[in-house]
């Protein structure tokens, strides 16, 4: 496995990328590779430098130093050989004014010489076939996001950049969009996504890079990052079912806390605790929560994750 990865040159190669705006070092020495077909997430709070990194990868900004290569070529300055191979998702408002969904996607497709018929198929893919005759001003936020993703994909790019695709959407619309993104990835495209939603990165990405203050703190598959954290599992039951002291007696080395609503037991060996609770029939309101990327972030930065 490792051998094959090394034999192929990566789709994206980012080396020691830096970009400063005045005093602010927005991107401060970022390096990573993205392999063909990978779903790669750049995760971090607002202002971490995700978008600047992405824009340098897209060729919209010139790095102060360091290099980006896509398919072995530099995207800066505007590289016409590269442009047909990459798709960039616009923000929700980035549409031509007063055009219908169908007209938008046909316009974008034709810039790449893609026929109207092929463009229309993308409306189906993102579930907007019914909305084809509506102007973008009349679409909901989620529909606009899906349309903008369709517009980014209309020319069938190998590499897709998505900048905060689900920001500002309600939870239902977010989940719908996740399905669309999974399909795109399943078609074999390489996808790079920035997000400040930890659950989004965890759910979608093969590999994530956690970014803060312009640097990558850690990167790897979400499951590996969480596992490597070796964080305790949190078992919570309704407060008052058993006392905190009784809970401490359930097994060795338990960390118990009771906030009056829930009694939480943190442990690295949840199985004996759960069976002990079951024996005592003390499982009212039970929830078991493993570590998440949030815990990873907390561990890496020493502070709570705030999007």
């Amino acid at each position: 496995m490792r051998g094959t990865v090394q034999a192929m040159s990566p789709t994206i190669k980012v080396e020691e990328l830096r970009k400063a705006y005045g005093e602010l070092r927005a991107v401060d020495g970022v390096s990573f590779d993205v392999q063909a077909g990978e779903f790669f997430g750049i995760l971090g709070p607002n202002g971490a430098g995700k978008t600047t990194t992405l824009e340098m990868m897209e060729g919209l900004r010139q790095p102060d130093s360091g290099s980006v290569t896509l398919f072995g070529e530099s995207p800066w300055p505007r590289n016409p050989r590269l442009l047909p191979r990459i798709g960039v998702q616009l923000q929700a408002s980035s549409f031509f004014e007063r055009l219908t969904a169908r007209e938008q996607i046909r316009t974008f497709a034709s810039l790449y010489g893609v026929t109207a018929r092929k463009a229309d198929e993308w409306l189906d893919v993102v579930g907007l076939a019914d909305m084809a005759g509506k102007r973008n001003e009349d679409l909901s936020g989620g529909q606009q996001q899906r349309l903008s993703i369709a517009c980014a994909l209309a020319h069938g790019p190998d590499l897709v950049f998505l900048d905060e695709p689900t920001s500002g959407l309600d939870p239902q619309a977010r989940r719908n969009l996740w399905d669309v993104l999974r399909d795109i990835s399943a078609q074999g495209r390489t996808v790079v996504l920035t997000t400040h939603y930890l659950d989004e990165a965890e759910s979608l990405c093969d590999r994530v890079a956690i970014m803060d203050h312009g640097r990558i703190l850690q990167s790897g598959p979400p499951a590996t990052l969480i596992r490597d954290l070796d964080a305790p599992t949190r078992i919570a039951i309704e407060s008052g079912v058993i006392t905190a002291d009784a809970a401490r007696g359930l097994a060795e080395g338990l960390d118990v806390s009771d906030d009056g609503v829930s009694l939480t037991i943190a442990t690295r060996t949840p199985a004996p605790v759960l069976s002990a609770l079951a024996e005592r029939d003390a499982m009212r309101g039970l929830s078991v929560r493993g570590a998440t990327l949030e815990d990873v972030f907390l561990h890496l930065t020493g502070r709570e994750y705030r999007a």
């Binding site: 408002s93 980035s94 004014e97 810039l111």
Partner: peptide
């Protein structure tokens, strides 16, 4: 101005037009 503000120019810059 509108095309710049709405990032349509940016989008066009990313297309081979």
């Amino acid at each position: 101005v509108t095309w710049r503000q709405k990032k349509i120019l940016r989008r066009l810059r990313l297309s081979p037009v």
